[in-house]
């Protein structure tokens, strides 16, 4: 990773009067990777993204966006950042195409190039058919997609997406995931905030957990060495548990289902467990990770805090 690429935030703080919205956040998001920003409601995600987008001044700490400091080099930082806010306001009487050409003009792109870029982006977010409809007839999910297109108008190096998937239908969620992965593959830095963890699981490479305005953990999603829970079910649950008691890893019964939960480290361990069960004549009907990596990590953190 180049020292000036991506997002680097250190010791960032911001309070609104007596409320410490962001108390102490460290965050690194590398170019070419998708970083998830995870935290409960009110944990300071949106405030942090406003600071990263160059709209809000941090009380303390340093931020670098693609090498530029949004406080002292705000214009340069803004030119490299694409920001999609969580509350999507739009110019209701403008058509989707006009929204994008206006934003292109605001990014100082000349009119002809702006028009071409608008058509390209409308195609990308599947809004071409609605391109000349006023924005107020768009549904929430369609507005959300228009908001994503708006953040991409000036081809930014760094993308800040605040709850991008809220209001999207399943098809659009898949499209969003594919698009975000593609942008990362092009070398862009993508920071996605959300509290819908299953969707981040498939999208993110890294995760930063924040809670009450502080960074509480950083981890890699693809990290295979980390133990995680797997869900194992058999046709005969009694035989399965008997077998595990006899020779197998520690397990606990699933509280609301017929299966058991086993903690395993890596895919190889799961394969080995499955083989040994079949060799012992147990009819295994499924073995799969229980919940997402991020969900487990998140719940574990919640647990620690209590």
């Amino acid at each position: 990773m180049t020292p000036d690429g991506g997002i680097r935030a250190q010791g960032v703080r911001r309070s609104f009067g007596p409320v410490h919205a962001v108390a102490d956040v460290d965050l690194v998001a590398a170019p070419g990777r998708v970083t998830a920003l995870i935290g409960p409601n009110g944990s300071g995600k949106t405030t942090l993204l406003l600071m990263l987008a160059g709209l809000l001044k941090p009380d303390a700490g340093t931020i670098r966006i693609a090498g530029a400091d949004p406080v002292t080099q705000n214009y340069v930082a803004r030119s490299r950042t694409g920001w999609m806010p969580d509350v999507f306001g739009t110019w209701d009487s403008l058509t989707a195409r006009e929204v994008l050409t206006t934003v292109a003009a605001a990014y100082r792109i000349d009119a002809a190039a702006g028009l071409a870029r608008a058509s390209e982006l409308l195609e990308l977010v599947h809004l071409s058919e609605l391109a000349d409809q006023p924005a107020h007839v768009l549904s929430r999910g369609q507005k959300q997609r228009l908001g994503l297109a708006r953040a991409l108008v000036h081809d930014p190096d760094v993308l800040l997406l605040d709850e991008p998937a809220s209001g999207l239908d399943p098809r659009s969620r898949v499209d969003l995931r594919v698009l975000v992965r593609r942008l990362a593959a092009e070398g862009k830095t993508v920071l996605v905030s959300s509290h819908v963890l299953t969707e981040l699981d498939e999208m993110a490479d890294d995760a930063v957990f924040i809670s009450r305005g502080r960074t509480v953990a950083t981890q890699s999603v693809a990290d295979g060495d980390r133990p995680r829970e797997w869900r194992l079910t058999g046709l005969d649950p009694e035989a399965l548990t008997a077998r595990l008691d006899e020779d197998g890893p520690a397990y606990r019964k699933e509280p609301d289902g017929p299966g058991v939960l086993v903690e395993l480290t890596g895919d190889a361990a799961a394969a080995a467990l499955l083989r040994s069960a079949i060799e012992a004549g147990i009819d295994v009907s499924s073995l799969a990770p229980a919940g997402g990596v991020l969900e487990q990590a998140y719940l574990a953190l919640e647990e620690e805090r209590r």
């Binding site: 340069v76 100082r108 792109i109 000349d110 009119a111």
Partner: peptide, 23 residues
Amino acid sequence: MSVDVEVVESAQPDGVVPGERGT
């Protein structure tokens, strides 16, 4: 809008830093 061909500073997709503009 569409007939406008005024040349303005175009976006810099290749990462060239545009000049700083103040408030």
